[in-house]
Simulated scan of single mutants.
Amino acid sequence: MKNRSLYFILALVIFSCQTKDNQFENATDDPPSYWLETLDSVTVKDILVRTFMFQTADSAHVIFKDAASSDVYVFDKAGNPIDQWNKTGDVPGALSMAAGNFKLDKNGNLVILDIMNGLKVFKKNGDIVQNFGIYQHQWSVGGAFSLFKSYQVIEKNGKEYLLYSLDVIDEAPEEYGPEYLQARKNLILTDLETEETQTFLPFPEGSQFLNGNVFYFSDFRPVFSYNPKTQVLYLLFQNEPILYTYDWSGDEPILKEKKTLNLDGFVSNTGYEKGAVDFPKIADYKVNPFPSQILNLEQYGDDLLITYKPTPADKADIAMVISGDASKELKKTLSEEIKKRTVVLTPNGDLIPVNLPEMNPYDFVVLGEDIWWMKKHTGEEEQEDFTVYRGRLVKE
């Protein structure tokens, strides 16, 4: 009994001595975790497409599209087909395979950003509401199909905007060097009624991207989440585990706080000397085959939901992959080590892992209080029936 009392006192002392500097680390060796509880699901049948992806939903509809074409499918909540349409070829509102995912505006219209054809707003039946051009043509396209948010429809001062970023949002500089990064603006805001567009938000002071080196564009892609109620903008750059929090109650976001996140296995790239990286290059997996990347940032209730990919711990293993000497077994081991991880960041700074079910490799999407995802297809036969699930995080 005395030993138990001593252990209890010692635990209290250790807990009370934790400092604010450690607030982004879990307090115990056996931290709690979250799991995804299924609330309901919708199954749609007899679909023959190449890359069928859930897009969004409202109180009455569930919307999908074929990411490999411009086919759009609208169903009711029972899975019954309501409408199907496409924007293929030389037609008004044409979409390319580079188009992102649909978002809903306040009127229930579908907003989509296509970096090849521009910003579009459609009614659910396919009628065009707005057909804007592209703000800046891209030199290259990076990123696989994913449901993760790459842009957000937001409301400020009674107007709706699309908040987004592009790998290249400027004219090409004469030389790609640290001067370009010093002057770069990382976010774009487009008025969904007038198409008036502005770029804003330079790299914050102290960011690694201002260290005098140059970087691949995938390193400083921003992921972000704007909360219209609190008028707070949360932002991370993909290869920098620092959460930047901005007050956006005025015309321009003002940096309030920055916090380094202790993401297990995350390794930041310090960059390369001027001239070592071509201007529009997204990444070079021969140079860095396993870059750490923050893939998604979402507001989820009072918490933030963060998904990232780590880097293998053994540098010698990475060197073998670069040299071409890695065995199949080693490559398989490393592919397991770098699997995506999702964590919850609580307001008091705890990072809590999320145990996600097997799901479609295109990941999940957060809509309000709910998380939507599609079941992973494991059969060899061609899939014709698809199920999308709606769930919420539960703390274990």
Rank of each mutant, 00 (worst) to 15 (best):
D83G: 11
S59D: 15
Q84N: 06
V111K: 00
Y73C: 11
N107S: 14
K106N: 11
V111C: 06
F122D: 11
L104C: 00
G142W: 04
H61M: 13
W139D: 07
L104K: 06
K103E: 14
S59Y: 05
F148L: 08
N131H: 08
D83E: 15
G142A: 08
V74I: 13
S146K: 10
T56W: 02
Q136M: 09
S140W: 11
Y73L: 15
G158R: 07
Y164E: 08
G108Y: 09
E155Q: 12
G93Y: 10
G133R: 15
N101W: 00
A99P: 13
Y161G: 05
I154N: 03
A144E: 10
S69D: 06
L110H: 00
A98Y: 13
I82E: 15
D66L: 02
N109M: 08
Q84T: 09
V141W: 15
W85K: 07
Q152H: 04
K120S: 07
K106C: 09
F145D: 13
Y164A: 07
G133Y: 12
A78W: 03
K123H: 10
Q136W: 05
H61S: 14
V153E: 07
D71K: 09
L95D: 00
V91D: 10
D90W: 10
I154F: 02
P92D: 13
V111Y: 06
G118D: 00
W139H: 12
G133W: 10
